[in-house]
């Protein structure tokens, strides 16, 4: 749909005969194209602005490498900056050696929390743990049923929540039930909620205080637009996230929200959802995200070798 960034950059730099130095003038033209690409990918306006100014600082005065065109050189600098921002390695879950771990999944309505709970259950079981699914959503119609069915499909035990129970009570009772059933990792599937909803945000804080989960993960939709900074910023401020799961990455969204979320929270993106099935979960690899956001495909792997 969009013209490739590298083509655009090449046309910006074609005046620059052969190889030269990136200077104030030519770098600005190039960075304008980078900025457009970031905004088209849904990177937040302010985040894009600060990324661009950081990149400019790094780029000024750089000699263009023999093996690269100036356009490719700019992309390399952008890629290096992305890697610096996103971190270069995958970060897993951390249970701090506690005998009974718990992962709390939170996020906006429809982001993919319940589905991700099932995916993580499968993942943890493969890691040798004994997961316990806990429906904490007492609001959405048939939310408990949904997780129960997922548990049945995977043959993972599910806590017997009812819509009459209070969410905190569910979590507390589930801790006891997990031990009784020989499980060691709770997956708390909370109801979707708006970050603006003070009452429901307070409910999450109450659960956090009450059971001190090992991991609080924000489940966010890869198709999220500019608002990603508000959403992630608010959830992080209220709950001090341990990480993020980015869902629906199997689509064609460029996923600029990943960069926005990282910039605002500083928290690692840990997993990506790549489908509706319980097996469709992958470790998040920060380096692959850059080429996706920039819409670059193979160009980047070529440049990375330079």
């Amino acid at each position: 749909m969009f013209e490739n960034l590298s083509d655009r950059l090449d046309s910006v730099f074609k005046k620059l005969k052969g190889h030269g130095t990136l200077n104030e003038k030519n770098i600005d033209d190039g960075l304008k194209q980078v900025r457009m690409a970031l905004l088209e990918a849904d990177v937040n306006y302010k985040v894009a602005k600060s990324v661009i100014s950081d990149i400019k600082e790094r780029a000024l005065g750089q000699e263009v490498m023999q093996s690269l065109t100036p356009g490719q050189q700019v992309i390399k600098i952008v890629n290096d900056e992305f890697t610096r921002m996103m971190g270069s390695e995958h970060q897993g879950l951390n249970f701090d050696g506690s005998s009974l771990g718990s992962i709390m999944l939170i996020g906006l309505q429809g982001s993919g929390k319940t589905t991700t709970a099932g995916k993580l259950a499968l993942y943890l079981r493969k890691e040798g743990r004994k997961p316990f699914l806990v429906p904490v959503d007492v609001y959405r119609p048939a939310a408990i049923d949904q997780l129960k069915k997922i548990g049945q499909q995977l043959d993972v035990p599910v806590f017997e929540s009812t819509t009459e129970m209070k969410p905190l009570k569910i979590c507390q009772d589930a801790l006891l039930a997990a031990r009784e059933q020989g499980c060691d990792t709770l997956l708390l599937d909370t109801a979707g909620r708006l970050h603006l909803d003070e009452e429901l945000m307070a409910e999450l804080k109450g659960i956090k205080q009450g059971i001190n989960p090992s991991e609080i993960l924000l489940v966010a939709d890869a198709m999220t637009g500019q608002d990603a900074v508000n959403i992630a910023g608010s959830f992080d401020k209220a709950l001090d996230l341990d990480g993020v799961v980015l869902t629906k990455m199997d689509g064609d969204a460029r996923g600029g929200a990943a960069l926005s979320i990282k910039a605002v929270t500083g928290k690692p993106l840990k997993f990506i959802g790549v489908g509706e099935k319980s097996t469709a979960l992958e470790a998040f690899h920060p380096d692959r995200m850059a080429s996706r956001i920039l819409g670059m495909g193979d160009t980047l792997s070529f440049i990375e070798k330079a």
């Binding site: 749909m1 990918a41 198709m223 999220t224 637009g225 064609d252 460029r254």
Partner: peptide
């Protein structure tokens, strides 16, 4: 369409 969605909505 979800209002939270960005440019992907066009696709």
């Amino acid at each position: 369409l979800d209002a939270t969605t960005g440019q992907n909505a066009i696709s």
